[in-house]
Design a protein around this nucleic acid. Structure first.
Lengths: 234, 234
DNA sequence: CAGGCTATGTCAACGGCGTTGACGGATGAC
DNA sequence: GTCATCCGTCAACGCCGTTGACATAGCCTG
């Protein structure tokens, strides 16, 4: 992997495309997100991106070294969208919960980007701002530095992990998703209550919750546990 | 997506490959895992798998409908490896912790498979056994059904989410990983303490923990929170 | 206005990918 | 021995990311 920061931001000579479009990093990122949103996760390829832009696919490489670079840029865009207009309320539980839910939903809006970007580090401004905001909430609430950093890590990784998982499920072709659901139900139906008593006893609850994400509940658990540790410190 | 269960398990006529290998589902799965382990995540392609098997790539399609089917089979294999030799101890905290750590490390051993398989449902025996084991631990501990199912979902998704995230990080080419790390450090070094006071105050702690997974800590938080809810019920 | 420089869009090509359909040699049944 | 069938092989299709050579538009200098 070579350097990031590809073509030096100072770009003055812009030649319009054969089809009359003037390219830019911003336009490419927006078009990529639109492509994902409209035509599904797997529609994001350089060739289709070029077609959607009205430009030759290889023109993208004047703005990003590779698709990996493009994805990092998209990732930072998503973080920015998640944090837009957010303000701390002073209630650290509510703040943490709000940040988590925003990250989760921002990533879910663009599943493929989430899956590929969740574990990367962009080092760009939106990401740094988000880190600062989370640490601010925790340290202002009174967590000692060591504990704040641990909780920060657990919180971020949990949020991104759930987002990646849920996004991956969303990114599945509809046929595969319903096939998976049918596999669950038929495998439950076939189970013997004597060999799998606990599944049999809770089958109705298990399948009922299958569609929705477990993230909000897990987030509450994390916040509760953190609150307990904070109380114990006093 | 078409039906699973591809070529009917009763297969009697096996012709050896040009290179003298006798194929089977099991051999293909094992070879695929070996390929991932030895040559990295992106080495698993049908063509390289064929080469590693000593067979024509298209021969794989006699045993699996597609690479997706193959991945589901690999996923169930991983779950089986994670649960091998596990026995409940009667201490639900210890049991839950042990199951979580086993899932996490089994998936980390095969990052690419984890990333692709974590969100899928195989409906095979290993998966069902794992679900039964987890539910058994929770219900035996005294959690009411509704609560047990909720914690089950949070627990499984958290484990798989972290596993997918950590696996994705492991699956990165070494160059990209160190590049990400350098980006972190240099972005911290450049930060102004007046604009990002909380990052500046904890920078030494943040970078120190960067390499290790936050999963064990998050797992403890979840178990603590679950314990608190159990205590509140009594 | 002329000429050149260079940024940037275009083109053609490379090698790799998953997947498919036709082919035919080996295998087991009788 | 004959025959049907399984299953490994081959060749091909249409995608993919990426690259290097080329051409041309826009700006700068004079």
């Amino acid at each position: 992997m070579s350097e990031r920061v590809v073509p030096e931001p100072r770009r003055r000579r812009r030649r319009p495309t054969k089809q009359g479009v003037v390219l830019s990093q911003e336009l490419i990122i927006d078009t990529a997100l639109r492509l994902i949103e409209q035509h599904g996760a797997e529609a994001l390829t350089v060739r289709r991106l070029g077609a959607a832009l009205g430009a030759d696919p290889s023109a993208v490489y004047r703005y990003f070294h590779s698709t990996d670079d493009l994805l990092l840029a998209i990732a930072d865009e998503l973080i920015g969208l998640a944090q837009a207009d957010w303000r701390a309320t002073g209630d650290w539980r509510a703040d943490l919960r709000a940040i988590g839910l925003r990250i989760h939903s921002a990533y879910l809006a663009h599943p493929q980007a989430a899956v590929l970007a969740a574990h990367r580090t962009t080092g760009r401004t939106h990401e740094t701002a988000a880190v600062e905001a989370i640490l601010s909430v925790l340290r202002t609430a009174g967590f000692p530095d060591q504990e704040a950093v641990r909780i920060y890590h657990a919180f971020v990784d949990q949020s991104l992990g759930f987002a990646a998982l849920d996004a991956a499920a969303l990114a599945l072709p509809a046929a595969a998703a319903t096939a998976d659901l049918r596999v669950w139900q038929s495998s439950y139906a076939r189970l013997d209550a004597t060999t799998h008593p606990h599944i049999a006893a809770t089958a109705h609850l298990l399948t009922a919750d299958m569609r929705s994400s477990g993230y909000p509940y897990a987030l509450d658990l994390l916040i509760d546990a953190a609150g307990a540790r904070l109380a114990a410190l006093r």
